[in-house]
């Protein structure tokens, strides 16, 4: 494996916030990454730094072995699709899709046409009159058809309905299989994209808290539920990521369980259940919310998607 991105001690401070805090990160070639975290965790800033759009306070960044800032050799191989992308007032989707190939050497016009049909994107309507979902579709199409060796999608799905999102995931997988490249997908919809990811990076409060192979992360935690006494007995001496209590009943999220430990838990009358990637991320990053609301962490996380 070859690293396409290497960041060391990367830090970016704004007036009173440290958006990215001493991040060490390596992104390997031809892999689909998930960049996950809460709103304001530093995902967008990190991607802006890696694409030379934002300037690092300290630390080093190497993309394709070079500094990305003002570097045409590097940037011509990067596609950065962001939810907040602005277009000129009088632009239509056709204007965007006509000019994108001038910048991306690997652009596939046929693929772009197919995606336009898939997403039913009107080409002649002014962009400011498009729906939020259609606006997102322009970004998704640009990102996919550019076939850039390093493609960032920063929450590209805003306003896209479930069908359109599924089209996005399917086309991404298909095209990635035929034209492998490095894709970094920043998203809140963790359960939807979980199976697409090969590697998961979770950022919280500007720092990377999980940087792990998606497969080793899957099943790295389990939920056990039962009487409070049985749960307490089982979790004694184990690291507990999260726990909740309701009267005499309790649930706890613990680390990976071996087959023997699972058997032991069932023998003690406990229910053993899986922890989804989304729950795992919520449990890992909910630490900064007050304890009283942590039980709602999962729901508040979902709400952020529509914010």
């Amino acid at each position: 494996m070859t690293a396409v991105v290497e960041a060391r001690g990367l830090t970016k401070r704004y007036k009173n916030v440290t958006a990215v805090d001493h991040v060490d990160l390596t992104i390997e070639e031809n892999t689909i990454y998930g960049l996950l975290g809460r709103n304001g965790a530093g995902k967008t800033t990190l991607m802006q730094l890696l694409t030379g759009q934002e300037f690092a306070g300290s630390g080093s960044i190497r993309v394709f072995g070079e500094d990305p800032v003002e570097n045409a050799r590097v940037l011509s191989r990067i596609s950065f699709i962001k939810e907040s992308q602005k277009y000129p007032e009088d632009f239509t989707a056709r204007h965007v899709l006509r000019s994108a190939p001038w910048f991306f050497p690997e652009w596939d016009a046929e693929f772009a046409d197919r995606l336009v049909a898939d997403f039913r994107l009107p080409l002649k309507t002014r962009i400011k009159k498009l729906s939020r979902g259609q606006l997102s579709a322009i970004g998704v199409i640009t990102g996919l058809a550019s076939r850039a060796p390093l493609t960032f999608f920063d929450e590209p799905y805003l306003g896209l309905d479930a069908v359109a999102r599924q089209i996005f995931y399917d086309r991404l997988l298909e095209d990635y299989a035929e034209h492998p490249r490095t894709v970094v997908l920043s998203t809140h919809l963790i359960d939807e994209v979980g199976d697409l990811l090969e590697h998961v990076i979770v950022i919280d409060d500007g720092a990377i808290v999980i940087d792990q192979d998606a497969e080793s992360l899957r099943g790295s935690a389990s939920t056990i539920a039962g009487t409070a006494a049985a749960v307490d007995a089982f979790t004694a001496g184990r690291e507990v990521l999260h726990s909740e209590r309701l009267g005499g009943l309790a649930t706890a999220t613990v680390g990976r369980l071996s087959a023997a430990e699972r058997a032991e838990a069932s023998a003690a009358g406990l229910e053993v259940g899986p922890v989804s990637l989304q729950q795992l991320v919520v449990r890992t990053t909910a630490g900064s919310v007050p304890a009283a609301t942590s039980a709602d962490a999962s729901t508040s996380f979902d709400k952020e998607q529509s914010a």
């Binding site: 892999t31 995931y169 399917d170 997988l173 298909e174 299989a177 697409l196 090969e198």
Partner: peptide, 18 residues
């Protein structure tokens, strides 16, 4: 092929390959 498995099950091709 692994790509067919990946597309059918909507999973990462590397995972299917594994």
């Amino acid at each position: 092929s692994t790509n067919e498995f990946a597309a059918f099950h909507r999973i990462n091709p590397a995972t299917a390959g594994k």
